[in-house]
Design a protein around this nucleic acid. Structure first.
Lengths: 235, 235
DNA sequence: AACCCGGGCGACCATCGGACGCTGGTGCC
DNA sequence: GGCACCAGCGTCCGATGGTCGCCCGGGTT
């Protein structure tokens, strides 16, 4: 069994390399720092229990379509995000990035509600946005908020929180170049890695020190990226 | 489905009531504050999904005995704890309470090791004693440490950390009265509830502020006890 | 209308925190 | 030796954090 690290994002066929982005927005002391260049990375499993019993691990996911019948209420999928500049409204059936970031603030509010409720009931009180918070959000009318969506863009929100100027510039640049959301999302990692580097590579500390970020788990991919860069460029 | 709260401990047939303990060690403003008096407490499940599909929930636990054959190495069970005074060695095939508390310190050390390793590998770094820590302890030679044991006595260790004098007195008192470990363990809750009360009923804060306690999860039963007492005696 | 791009989010998974009670060690008679 | 007590800890369980890619919305031709 292997532990893989797909740093290039979910689709391997993105047409542009991130290296094409303006220099000011990228890691410089690498020029071999491109995520794409890293590709996959195989690490031996620390626990290779010599038994090949995990053979058949079939995929069959999804069932979808409204065959459910149970009053499921079937929400229509939210409009996709597009790269927008700060203050710019999204055109067509799309949502802008200001809206995306606003979703994170909403989750913060829902967390506070969940914390209040927990305290009143004498139950343990979450410090992070947990499943419980997503459940509460859904039940309380924010059906457009869900875990995978929020997780997908945490690092983008992180950049927005830690360095608005740079975040704004990145949005402008990617919008001008007509990049899609996936490319922008991917590009948000670089400035964060630089920020981590300036903070002794302690990305958790960076999150914890920021009022708004503190409630979000550090994304695994971001953590791994920081680690790889730390190792690559002399500790 | 019901959520139950067994405040009296695992055996309902303990021969002594905790009320028999010296007054100074107990909650006074209750005299109806006995845990035993509370018995079970039924709360309606917030999510009663009207379907009785969870009918057959059979018990069949345990397999034990060395029929395993696989090089399992089968550790002999640790000697039981007995109530001892501070500094007093346990007689016979028993372990004393100093040894018990020492186990918690050892876990703290193991946590630090796990944290160091995690930091080096760029993985997320636990702040609490997690499964991973217990696993590490076992693999590193401390096979006598295990999760259920440590969890069983966390609140006892908590009292020891937060108020050694009171903890010591309680040990002495219970030893003199010839109480068994279960009774002493149960009795440790009371002083903690009082401590919580003095801290605006914030038991989590009490744990978090203490250097040694911070790494342990607040036991559910202790949290519930605090909640019940807070409600019972006017907020 | 037909097609294809790309991303929303349903659903899965390993593992977690948490709990309970069966076994069997232990002291007493 | 036999027995009764009782607690160590194996084992289970619901729920969590984390992930991936199916399915279909949407813009373009």
């Amino acid at each position: 069994e292997q532990q893989r690290l797909d740093l290039a994002g979910r689709t391997g066929d993105r047409k542009r390399k991130v290296d094409d982005a303006p220099d000011t927005l990228l890691l410089k002391e690498g020029h071999g720092t491109s995520l794409d260049a890293l590709g996959l990375l195989g690490l031996t499993d620390p626990e290779s229990d010599s038994e090949d019993k995990k053979v058949a691990k079939k995929k069959q996911r999804k069932r979808r379509s409204k065959e459910v019948g149970e009053d499921g209420e079937e929400r229509p999928r939210e409009h996709p995000f597009i790269v927008t500049e700060p203050g710019e409204p999204a055109k067509g059936k799309k949502n802008g990035l200001d809206y995306l970031f606003n979703l994170y603030e909403q989750c913060g509010k829902f967390l506070e509600e969940v914390q209040q409720i927990a305290k009143e009931k004498g139950e343990k009180c979450p410090t992070k946005v947990t499943n419980e918070v997503f459940r509460h959000a859904k039940l309380t009318g924010a059906g457009y908020i869900n875990k995978p969506k929020m997780r997908d863009y945490v690092h983008c929100y992180a950049l927005h929180c830690l360095d608005v100027e740079q975040s704004n510039e990145l949005r402008k640049a990617y919008k001008e170049r007509g990049e899609n959301v996936g490319a922008w999302c991917q590009a948000c990692y670089y400035p964060l890695v630089l920020l981590a580097r300036e903070n002794e590579w302690d990305i958790d500390d960076l999150f914890n020190r920021n009022e708004k970020l503190r409630i979000w788990y550090v994304p695994t991919k971001l953590r791994q990226l920081c680690h790889i860069e730390r190792i690559k460029h002399g500790e």
